[in-house]
Design a protein around this nucleic acid. Structure first.
Lengths: 109, 109
DNA sequence: TGTATAAATAAGCAAACGCTTATATAATGA
DNA sequence: TCATTATATAAGCGTTTGCTTATTTATACA
């Protein structure tokens, strides 16, 4: 890995909202509309964060009906380090369980 | 470590010139004027990078006569991870050995 | 069909970034 | 004391970032 690649990778994770997104993705696969609830953020803002994470190959996406399901890219070289970093961060107050309790968890099959 | 701290830390290392600085520091303690040679960068530019690294507690400084000697902060929680990251990066073309060969290595005692 | 929902994209804007040049501060040594 | 050297700081400038609102694209379903 060269300096430019490393810079792109680190820049992609150097944002507290994107770290939150990655923290959520470390336990669940989620879609944009769920993140807007979890992060209390507008849909375009979330969408643009996902685009950055995708560009750095940190996440993968899968179309499912009208939803796009996002997951961590477990194949990335730095995936183990990322998991370690995320483990140092506290659990967010709003959790996926909150979504389920509010009936906002997306179920697509 | 909370999300804000982690963001500051990662932002501090998310720059290819600062990664180069850290790479150099992983094997030698150096002063600003040596970095201007190693990175082919102006003195204020280097000085401002060191200020950012210091603010994130990645480096420590020690005054020695008219020089300020900079070192990696080996006491930082994420120091082992930093060393691992730096180990993934290639050795720079211009090395401290080059400085020595050109008689530009600073010796202060 | 037509309407609702999910997501992407575009344009605009304030703030932060990385650099520049100019200047200030501080220590050295003739 | 005065010139030199090392570093820090200040102001300015073009680019990037993270958001906003508005719009577009695409899928689902009554």
């Amino acid at each position: 890995m060269d300096y430019v690649n490393m810079e792109s990778y680190l820049k992609a994770i150097s944002d507290h909202n994107r770290m939150l997104i990655l923290k959520y993705l470390s336990t669940d696969s989620l879609c944009i509309c769920e993140f807007t609830e979890l992060l209390d953020m507008t849909q375009p803002a979330v969408s643009q964060h996902m685009r950055k994470l995708k560009a750095a190959e940190l996440v993968t996406e899968e179309k499912r009906g009208r939803w796009t399901i996002w997951s961590l890219n477990v194949r990335h070289n730095l995936y183990p380090m990322l998991i370690h970093l995320l483990s140092l961060l506290p659990e967010p107050e709003v959790t996926v369980k909150t979504l389920v309790a509010e009936g906002k968890r997306v179920v697509c099959d």
